[in-house]
Amino acid sequence: MTAGDEPLVAVARHGAVAVVQLHREAKLNALSAELEGQLLDAVRGPEVTGSRAVLLTGGDRVFSSGADVTELAGRSPAEVFAYYRSTGHVYEEVAGLPQPSVSAINGYCLGGGLELALATDFRVAAADAVFGFPEVGLGIVPSSGGLHRLVRTVGVARARELVLARPRIGAPEADALGLLTEVCAPGVDPLVRALELAAALAALPPLAASLALQAIDAAGEASREAALLIERLCYATLAQQPPAS
Rank of each mutant, 00 (worst) to 15 (best):
M1F: 01
D5R: 04
A10G: 05
V11D: 00
A16G: 06
V20D: 05
V20H: 05
L22S: 04
R24Q: 12
E25P: 06
L28S: 12
L28A: 14
N29G: 01
N29K: 03
A30G: 15
L31C: 08
S32M: 01
G37M: 03
D41K: 04
R44D: 15
G45A: 09
P46T: 14
G50H: 08
G50P: 00
R61E: 14
G66V: 05
V69D: 12
L72K: 07
R75T: 14
V80H: 09
F81M: 14
F81W: 11
T87W: 07
T87Y: 07
Y91G: 04
E92H: 10
A95V: 04
A95Q: 12
G96N: 14
P98D: 15
Q99H: 10
S101A: 11
G107H: 06
G111R: 01
L116P: 11
A119P: 00
A119V: 07
F122L: 10
R123S: 13
R123K: 15
A127R: 11
D128C: 06
A129V: 03
P134Y: 05
V136S: 12
L138R: 13
S144Q: 10
G145T: 11
R149Q: 12
L150G: 00
T153V: 02
V154W: 03
V156P: 00
A157D: 15
R158D: 15
E161Q: 14
L164E: 11
P167Y: 04
R168Q: 13
A174V: 01
D175F: 13
A176I: 04
G178K: 07
G178R: 07
T181I: 11
T181C: 10
V183D: 09
C184N: 10
P186S: 13
V192L: 07
V192N: 03
R193Y: 02
A194H: 00
A194T: 00
A198S: 03
A199R: 12
L201T: 06
A203S: 09
L204F: 02
L213D: 05
D217W: 09
D217V: 13
A219G: 11
A222G: 08
A227N: 07
L228G: 09
L228R: 13
E231A: 14
Y235T: 13
A239V: 08
P242Q: 12
P242C: 05
P243T: 05
A244M: 14
S245E: 15
